[in-house]
Design a binder for these strands. Structure first.
Lengths: 211, 211, 211, 211
DNA sequence: TATGAATGAGCCTTCATTCAT
DNA sequence: AATGAATGAAGGCTCATTCAT
């Protein structure tokens, strides 16, 4: 006769189940938030999308704010991850920069759920301090990442930055973020080519030939 | 012989009174909205700030949406007006461009009530189509204005644009808008000088010496 | 130079104007009430239908209740008037009774504005005592009228009533009123012929051959 | 061997609780509606009468309309049930018919809460289509029931109907409904005996001696 | 771990009424 | 005689949150 399965397993399973549910809620919340926006999203909407009861949502996240925090964090991570993939290696540095810019733009312009959520909660953060750290972190990370990759490419092109290093990616990110809002409100104002051209010019302006 | 007293009829007085009240409501709404954000602003808050009853607010603006529309319109106008003042004449075109950029930046970074409202409703517009036309109009106007003034200065500096004319102001505006969000979330990331430098570089990149 | 028009005239005009406006309001209220029902009718609706301001309605009728009272009174009068016309003379008493019943039925089934109002306010009167006198009066009048005309015809047919006189018209009216509600809720349940047949049978049952 | 205890699961208990609450709300609504009428009844009144919060009422019935629908349905059922009891067996068919008519009349004249509600919502149904099906159903049922019982008695009395079968109960119901309104508005106009006499005469008129 | 029931504060809106003009 | 402005009390409804189970 074999011994009964160790209780450790049960506990582990339960633990896992909880984690899975929590993740499902965050993912459901992301979808709903992207669809309806913060102001129009209720916990009920999220519970329904997650296929759970309202009570379950509160079990995992005690307040709406807490959930939103997690959602934002997760969305930032996702966007950052996807941005990281933009900088895949390429032989030609010119081509590499251009295609990377294009990817970064599309990441914003195509409005994935996560990008929408970041934009939406960014606005909320104007009046909800609790959301700001996650966003600051996001920008910081995006800057770092951009810095690492872009500098490498530019140096490979025989250029060196004219501004202090940390500033450069902030500027590029800012330009992309600013343009995407205009693009959304008035899609005819900017084509994809316009954006790439603009960012390239800015990038060029930020570097100068290496002595 | 003197002209007769202006015909201030009763109707005119009443009409004026209504207009004043309506304007007071918009101005109160702007203040509250800037302070609390769209999602946390109720018509009650606005009524209290305006020193009126909730009923009075609804008398002048039948729905919250209608009021928000007017508030946005008004805020856009205000911001545009203030931006117009940024381009005061100056002898030295270099100095003029630099100081204008500074004004445009401060207009955003100082977060006047109107600028806050525009930023907030811009995010709302992601999920509320009714708000978009006013914003599109705002951007269009801002672009036109920037175009007129900046081009004059740059040409005076012996430069000419490298991109199609309508695109240039969109890019500059986008950069400023994008940077201000980062500045807000993480004020230490960017100094005023950083921004001016960035915008100048972008501006320079967008022009080339005249043949 | 002729003397100015006597002020009596002006007063008369003004007086008349007031009366006309008051009547317009009642007539507008009747239309709106018939269309929307008591519970869904606001004074604003009535004012708009009457082409006046809300204030004007209150000028003529201090409260909503007061106006409803007048509306009910007027509607009752109108219905009674139309019912009176039902009893136009006819040579053949059999034919006369039948055609009169038909008219009385159609008066109800066709749902003129006035008939709708009476039905609607009748229900309101269950919880609003102020409305009852007008309705009691209406029924009393209808009974009297029916009594006068019907009895004449029946006697001409060599019949005399088996129940006390005042009761008979109450019964006939009751039957018609009751049937019309069923007809409204479920139009297929009763044809016009059904109704006429029913009322005739009832009428016959209420009379017996004169000795 | 005894059967096992019934599986009163937690879910079952909760489900039952919900059902009870829902029923309490309908019953409270019936009382309030009978007392105040549709137009003057708010969900707050109902919640207070039910000893619950407004939120609880909305939890069980999402809108006022939905609740009213259920209330009407329930009231119709109750009235129909009570009417069914009117036709208890009796040896003497004459006596049976008379006493049944009396019961049917009193059901209306005594204004039980349910009867009031049916009358009130009947009027509302003039302007609210959603209420009509329940009422049509009610009339249809009342007609069927009357038909079954009355015909039996009349045939036992050696009589047979002169009109098509489905029509007869409609006519009797209509008469009773119509008379009760007059009775309510002007109680002195009709005595109980008057009504019984009237209905009997009508009933007699609708039948003829069997060949 | 998860649910269903219930709460209560708050929201947008409607509306009869008042009042200065 | 009539109007437009303003009020304030409800009204129906939403929603984050609590809690027993």
């Amino acid at each position: 006769m074999t011994a009964p399965a160790p209780p450790v397993t049960l506990a582990a399973v339960r633990y896992k189940k909880s984690e899975i549910s929590a993740a499902q809620i965050v993912s459901a919340a992301t979808r709903v938030l992207a669809r309806q926006g913060y102001a129009r999203t209720s916990l009920m909407d999220i519970a329904v999308e997650a296929g759970m009861s309202k009570g379950a949502v509160h079990y995992h996240y005690p307040t709406k704010e807490a959930l939103m925090g997690k959602v934002l964090e997760h969305a930032c991570d996702q966007v950052a991850d996807r941005a990281r993939a933009a900088w895949s290696a390429a032989d030609n540095p010119f081509e590499s920069v251009r295609s990377s810019i294009l990817v970064l733009w599309r990441l914003r312009a195509q409005r994935t759920d996560e990008a929408s959520v970041v934009a939406d909660l960014l606005a909320q953060s104007l009046h909800d301090e609790a959301l700001r750290p996650a966003l600051a972190n996001y920008y910081r990370f995006a800057a770092t990442q951009l810095l690492e990759h872009l500098t490498v490419q530019m140096v490979a092109m025989g250029l060196r930055p004219k501004v202090r290093a940390e500033l450069m990616p902030r500027i590029l990110t800012g330009l992309l973020d600013g343009l995407v809002m205009q693009h959304f409100v008035d899609p005819d104002a900017l084509t994809e080519d316009d954006v790439v051209q603009a960012v390239e010019m800015l990038a060029m302006g930020l570097f100068e030939p290496q002595k």
